[in-house]
Computed example of a mutant assay.
Amino acid sequence: MRGTQIIQLFKGIQALSKTNGTTINELMEVLGRNDRKAAYRMLETIQGIGVPVYEEKIHGQRAKRWKIDETSRQKLAGLNLPDFTISLPDIVALQLLRSQATVFKGTEIETTLNRLFSRLDAFVPEGLFASLSKLGPLFGSSNKWAKDYSGKEGILDSLVEAMLERRTCLVRYHSFQQGRETRFKIDPLYFFEYSGGLYLFVRTTAYDDIRILALERVREVAPTSDGFEEPKDFDARARLSEPFGIIADDPIEATVRVSADQARYLLERPYFRERVVAEESDGAVIVQLNTSGRHDVVKWILSLGSQAEVLGPPELRADVKKELEATLSGY
C-alpha cells in the first residue's frame, strides 16, 4: 500500500469515526476522486483490517451513512494523522544526501539509511527513487577512493556517543608518523569527511593541542568518566574552509603563475578568483596564496605540471624543483 493510500485510509477512518459517520459522497471527497467504486473499496479495506463498520439509512433519503460502532469509535476518537507532505525538492535533497553517504558503504549506517529510504518510498510516487537513480551524474559521488569502514561501527558509535556526551576517551591509534600503535586520551570534537575518508578533530589531553585522527586507524575506544568542555578558540568549520588539505601547519605564502589554459578552470573557483593579483596579456594569471598545509600546496602545484610556476618564496620554489627532479630521476 502506497503512502498516499495509507493517508487516505486514515482520513477515511477519521470520517467514519465522527458521531454522524460519513456518506459515500464524503468519502469520495477524502479520496479526491469522483469515483463511487473507489469509495466502496475504501470501506471494504477498512473492514478488511478489522474495523467494524455498519450502515445506517438516512430518514427520507436513499443515501446511507456509514459509521464505526460506538465502542470502536471511542477507541479511535483520538486518532490524529499529521499533515505529512513531501515535495519533489525534498526528495531531491534527500537523494543527494544519500548519494554522499558512500563513505559508509558496508556498515550498519548504510543498512539504516537503506531501511529509512524504504520507508520513505511509501510516501512518494511509485518508482520515483528508482527513477532518480538514473540521474547518477547529478547525485552520485565521484569519489572512487572512498575508504572501507565495514566493521568500524562499534568504534564510530563510541566516538559519536562520547562526543555528544562530551566525555574523554582513551584510544589505541595506529600512527603512520610513528610507525606503531600508541595509547592516549582525547576529547572528541568534530567529525568530517575528506576525500572519501572519515576524520575526527580531537584535543589531546596530555598536550592540550588539536589533532586529526583517521577513523580507520583508530583501533580501540574506551570512554572514561571524565567530562570536558569544548575549546572556545577552536572553529572546525574555519579549519576546514581552507582548500589545501586538512593538515594545519605553519602559515605559508605562495605566489604562483598559472598558464592561460589552466587559468580558465582555476577562475571558476571563487577561492582562486579572489586571490588573483595580476593578469598577463596571454591570459595567464598570478595568484597570491596565504594558507597552511605546505605539503598539499606543493602537491597542488605539481598537479598542474608545466602549467604552473612558483614565483616565490624561494624555499617553496626549491621544494617544488626538488620534487620534480626526484620524479624525473625515476624515468
Rank of each mutant, 00 (worst) to 15 (best):
L215K: 03
I68A: 07
G12I: 02
V320W: 02
I6R: 15
S141N: 13
I186Y: 05
I13L: 01
R62E: 06
F184Q: 02
L240R: 03
A236L: 02
A122G: 07
W145M: 03
A130E: 14
V103F: 13
G196F: 05
Y265E: 08
G32D: 02
F244Y: 08
V276Q: 02
V30G: 02
Y271D: 04
R167T: 15
E216Q: 11
F117H: 07
P89N: 11
P314T: 13
I109S: 13
T107S: 14
G293M: 06
R166D: 08
I212N: 09
Y40I: 07
D35M: 00
G196L: 03
S131C: 03
G293L: 07
Y190V: 00
Y207H: 08
R115K: 13
Q177K: 11
E274W: 02
G60Y: 05
I301P: 01
A238F: 11
G106A: 11
N290W: 01
D187V: 00
E230F: 11
S158T: 07
S133H: 12
K147L: 06
D319S: 14
A39Y: 08
G151A: 04
Y265S: 12
S131L: 07
R317M: 09
T85V: 09
P223S: 08
I301N: 12
E108D: 13
R65Y: 04
Y190P: 00
L316D: 08
A162S: 15
R98L: 14
V218L: 05
E70N: 01
G12C: 04
E325S: 08
Q288Y: 12
A146E: 09
R172H: 10
D69K: 00
K185F: 11
A93Q: 12
T4D: 14
V53G: 09
L120V: 09
L9I: 09
T22M: 05
K144M: 01
S329Q: 13
S133Q: 15
D249H: 02
L159C: 06
Q307M: 03
E268A: 12
P89V: 10
R119M: 10
M163T: 15
K75E: 15
T45G: 04
G154M: 01
E242W: 01
Y207A: 13
Y54C: 01
